[in-house]
Computed example of a mutant assay.
Amino acid sequence: MTIALLTITAYFFGAIPFGLLVAKSRGVDIREKGSGNIGATNVFRVVGKGWGVFTFLLDALKGFIPSFVFPMIGNLNGDYGVLFGMVAILGHSFPVYLKFKGGKGVATSAGMLLGVAPASVGIGFLVWLICLLLSRIVSLASILAALTVGISVWFIKDSQIVCIALSILAVLVIWLHRANIKRLMNGTENRFGKKKETSA
């Protein structure tokens, strides 16, 4: 019963559309601006840098709290953090509040990873930062970071459950970026820092 309750709570917590709420507090419907995505990147571009960073932190907490705190609340094995974190990411990407049209889960995934595999987060963030600095393409940096985490966790984490779950998560994040991948292949993906961005 405890596990079921925490799992359900993780979904509804993850489904909170912080990007939409933050943007609306500034008088902007983020779904009608930029890429139309409710994630932190679009908030960053449309509403402002500070609000984008704030949204990223809130979305990251949606992954961190279920993965790190929920197992302690339920007095459960730490591996359950993977379950709760994954469900929170699904909530973010497919929120019931917005007819299952959510963000791409990068920030929420980072929060979850910080709770269950901090070393992989460090490596993934380094790859993300280097790629962003070199390419100025957020989506490419996110895709490569997800791939790096999915591979690196097999070398630095003992729990096979965590390894399998994070590999699945990497595939999910990349799949959610499929439109960006098409634009990358066509050479039409927007670069960070340019005005009138149309992707996230």
Score class of each variant (00 low, 15 high):
148 T>W: 06
178 R>E: 11
149 V>R: 00
183 R>L: 06
182 K>M: 07
146 A>H: 04
167 S>I: 05
178 R>H: 15
161 I>A: 11
178 R>I: 08
182 K>F: 04
147 L>I: 14
157 K>R: 15
163 C>T: 14
177 H>D: 10
173 V>H: 02
155 F>D: 04
172 L>G: 09
168 I>L: 15
175 W>D: 13
147 L>N: 08
180 N>C: 09
180 N>F: 03
166 L>G: 05
170 A>Q: 01
179 A>S: 13
172 L>H: 12
157 K>V: 15
155 F>P: 04
150 G>W: 00
158 D>Q: 13
177 H>I: 08
153 V>M: 02
153 V>K: 00
151 I>E: 02
172 L>S: 12
179 A>M: 09
144 L>D: 10
168 I>M: 14
164 I>Q: 07
174 I>N: 09
162 V>K: 00
161 I>W: 06
158 D>F: 08
154 W>P: 13
173 V>L: 04
151 I>R: 03
175 W>T: 14
144 L>S: 06
182 K>Q: 09
160 Q>C: 14
179 A>K: 09
168 I>A: 15
147 L>G: 12
151 I>N: 01
150 G>M: 02
150 G>I: 01
174 I>F: 08
168 I>R: 08
177 H>Y: 02
184 L>K: 01
171 V>W: 01
183 R>S: 07
159 S>Q: 12
156 I>N: 13
